[in-house]
């Protein structure tokens, strides 16, 4: 097999040429696909040692998370906990400790699975994803990254190098529903960011995962809540609205009706 270990992100395209490849970072999805015989005969590009993809730091008013940051690192990092608590919560619930020590944020985002838990988080937190191919670097707003289930804007030879989350006042939270606490793929997930000013909700963004072909925003619920006082009555009204804003499917993980119902329940649990 062809196993490429590039010396830098810049070299990836040159090493691959026109071939499609599989990026190997945490490998927690790749190795499952391999076991299931779902991989084609393509080269693997082992990016797990690229220092330029590591690290979590504050930079130009943003929290910059390198694509190789693992779920365990995200869950424990003081900067992530302070500036992106939704992301820390999502990362801390994903898989199990044995998976969280391997799985990376770059992999979770780049797989673009509709049930990927970091996706509603980057949407709620209004993040920008940094993509690179050779010397070309572009920044894509989180909501433009995924295009369909398991599809995104990355082109051949291009990789996601970092996530930039603007540091802003306000709170954020993530909550998910799965069949068990560990190793559960979300049936429904919610990431919410909100700002309270003088007792009123000045801004709110509600992002729903696993209830549509890609992450969806509950815009009507957001509008209804904006300007209101965050109390049990408002949350109750919102929880009745939110289920109608998703377009979930019936599948082996859950049913459409249940998913709509649970969006309301999860929204109540957030607040």
């Amino acid at each position: 097999m062809d196993y490429i270990i590039p010396g830098s992100v810049r070299e990836i395209k040159k090493e691959l040429g026109t071939r499609p490849g599989y990026f190997a970072a945490g490998c927690t999805d790749l190795m499952v696909l391999k076991k299931e015989g779902q991989l084609e005969d393509r080269p693997w590009i082992d990016i797990s040692r690229l220092e330029e993809l590591k690290g979590i730091r504050l930079e130009e008013g943003c929290l910059r998370i390198g694509a190789l940051a693992t779920m365990a690192e995200l869950a424990a990092d003081p900067l992530v906990k302070e500036h992106a608590p939704a992301m820390a919560a999502a990362a801390g619930q994903m898989g199990s400790p044995l998976i969280r020590n391997l799985a990376t944020i770059g992999g979770n985002l780049s797989n673009s699975n509709p049930a990927g838990d970091t996706i509603p988080c980057v949407n709620a937190l209004d993040a920008v994803l940094v993509l690179q191919k050779e010397n070309d670097i572009r920044e894509v707003p989180a909501h433009e990254f995924c295009t369909a289930p398991c599809e995104n804007v990355l082109s051949q030879g291009e990789i996601l190098t970092a996530v930039r989350i603007p540091v802003r006042p306000g709170k954020s939270a993530f909550i998910k529903l799965g069949p068990r606490r560990a190793l559960a793929i979300s049936k429904v997930s919610l990431a919410v960011r909100w700002v309270i000013e003088k007792g009123l909700i000045e801004d709110i963004r509600i992002c729903m995962g696993a209830v549509g072909p890609k992450c969806m925003r509950a815009r009507r619920t957001e509008e209804m809540m904006k300007g209101g006082r965050l109390n049990a009555e408002l949350v109750s009204r919102a929880s009745h609205m939110i289920g109608n804003e998703a377009c979930p499917i019936d599948d082996f993980r859950s049913s459409e009706t249940y998913r709509r119902q649970m969006l309301g329940v999860l929204l109540k649990r957030v607040f």
């Binding site: 196993y3 270990i5 190997a24 945490g26 490998c27 927690t28 790749l30 190795m31 499952v32 076991k35 693997w44 082992d46 797990s48 365990a72 400790p97 044995l98 998976i99 020590n101 391997l102």
Partner: peptide
């Protein structure tokens, strides 16, 4: 299949030998 890689517990079925 839990082992320690660089002192962290991981599922060794998920780690390619090359890594």
């Amino acid at each position: 299949c839990t082992v320690l890689v660089d002192n962290k517990p991981v599922a060794s079925c998920m780690v390619p030998a090359g890594q």
